[in-house]
Design a protein around this nucleic acid. Sequence first.
DNA 1: AAACCGGTCAACCGCTAGCTC
DNA 2: TGAGCTAGCGGTTGACCGGTT
Length: 334
Amino acid sequence: MGRAPCCEKVGLKKGRWTKEEDEILARYIKEHGEGSWRSLPKNAGLLRCGKSCRLRWINYLRADLKRGNISEEEEEMIIKLHATLGNRWSLIAGHLPGRTDNEIKNYWNSHLSRRAADFRDGVVVNVDLSKLPGGGKRRGGRASRGVMTAAKEKVKEKEKEKGKRKSKVAEAEHQKDEEQQLKEDDDMALSTPSSHSQPCGAAQSEEQAQGSASGLTSDDGHDEDPLALSEEMMSALLGPGSPKLEVGPDGSCMDSDSGPSVVVDGESGPGGPTGDVGQELGDKAIMDWDLMGLDISTAGDMWDYADMDVVVPGGGHHQQQQELMSDLFFLDNM
DNA sequence: AAACCGGTCAACCGCTAGCTC
DNA sequence: TGAGCTAGCGGTTGACCGGTT
């Protein structure tokens, strides 16, 4: 049988937190650490639900939170990530250190969604959610640890095998990248500390990778994608000097000259990068680093990325490779 | 000065996946 | 094995605040 109920709803305080409550909660977590949210209010002497305590800590009291306005860089990042991930606020927050999912969600709803709607002039990205498992609908629920664990195991095994047949060139590149990583700061926008602790997509279950129901589906069943960003809209949002976006003939959106592109080399299965992702170079495909160019309409097909050698041209380092592998895994599990 | 209005954001709600017993 | 609980997620609500009439 299960455990006792999380908390008695009767007699618990609701609404805004007082300064005193904040202090009690912060002091308790400082002494005892995070977790055990169920017993926390009782132990700390708070008349709050554990859920409420957790939310207050995560969204407001945590020491590593960045206070203040969202910067232009962060805004740009949110727009790009939202175009790729949809309303996956926790994933987006994982790429923005010090920002919470709630904060980003609020910022999007109050600042960016309206701007996006102003610019939207039709369907830009084809997202046929009916082809995705579950019909493209999803609600909350935590990320699938099972999927993540299984994937890590799978990647480890593949890497073991791959290590044996890896080319000398790639090995030299890899070694060089690791050396560089020690010396230089990572100026890649997507290579943030938090994104390492929460690998993008690696923890996603099959259903979670479908995008939120309200974000990606329309009530009348059309394929309209409210998250789609046209070239005009993105250019306006990103401002002068921003990378120029290109809209592919199939409607996919791609960022043609932002950041280092990534060459994905090797076997790419159906629905893989070739043809759908950026520019083709023989058996290689140039993939936009932020994955803006991915055509998720083909996501139903599996893509054995683990067999690929991922090389970042121009001396990209190992960290970027691992970031990419995380993102690829996310797409693999869509 | 007061009423109204719209924007922002903290907090709540309902749901799901995974875990525990 | 399955019922029930926990943790975490995204959507929604409503209090608060500043600007306008």
